[in-house]
Amino acid sequence: MKNLIYIFSILIILSCSSDPEIDTNLLDSVEILDSSLLNPENYLVSAKYPNPTEEEKNKKVIIAVHGFSASTFEWDELRRFIENRNIDTVLLSQVLLGGHGRSYEEFKASSYEDWQESIKAEYDKLIALGFTDITLVGSSTGCPLILDLLNIKYFGKELKEVFLIDPIIVPSDKMLSIVGVAGPILGYVESDLSEGEEKYWYKYRPYETLKELNSLIIKVRKQLEDNLGIGDVKMTVYKSLKDDAADPVSAVLLYKGIKTNYGKINVEMIDSDLHVFTRLDLRPTVSEKDKSNQFKVFADITNFAYIR
């Protein structure tokens, strides 16, 4: 019996996986980069308007932050929503999180502080350029990254409003809580992507990054337990009722944990089973309800007037 235990232990040690074989058609490869790295002026307001006019400075700038292992693609539909409706009162900055949209190796080596860096960088540039009205929009992991910055009062009075879409505070996959133990054995986790998504999401998630994700959400959850104050900043949380990545109970923790100068934040539970229900491109199936959910939230974010 004793020998069996030793053999089993040695097998566990030997089973520690190395890195995956990466095809060149994947975002994980060095061949495919997020478009914002090649053409930042198409994605970042700070790059598009290096010398903004007074009128441009007073427009509302939306900084859109994508989720874990995703890319700027996650907010492309918001850009199209703004362009197709000629909404000229807002400007959109789609930031690419650090370590994302590059390669598996760069992702593996990145920490959540690295992911956060691009949000800080774009905000700082916009402030330096004189923009006065900033809104943050986050999806999934983008949300705890924003919340962590709100907790340290990183943003100034220019930040007026925050929208969080399917924030991950409690993961749906509870095995994330033992990533420190199981991670070194697994090495990486392969995600199940739909056709076409492999160019915009990392297919392989190194355990090091899952560990970072776990550290981030534990940190933010504790901040929420201790009261996360956001002052006068308006906040709205939208949360799918069923979600295989961010547990719906995440919304409860936000509702209880965020303190403002005006009362409780606004939380809306959305009848959807999609994670990041505002991204419909490349979904295998999209219902009318999904389209209506997306439209409503995009209209709220951009202050687009419509008859409900």
């Binding site: 409690v170 996959d173 509870k174 033992i178 069923k242 295989d244 547990d247 719906p248 109970v249």
Partner: peptide, 15 residues
């Protein structure tokens, strides 16, 4: 029995 985002309670963890 623990939460998985679609069923169960999200704050009921496995271990």
């Amino acid at each position: 029995i623990h939460g998985d985002g679609s069923n169960g309670i999200g704050t009921l963890y496995p271990f």
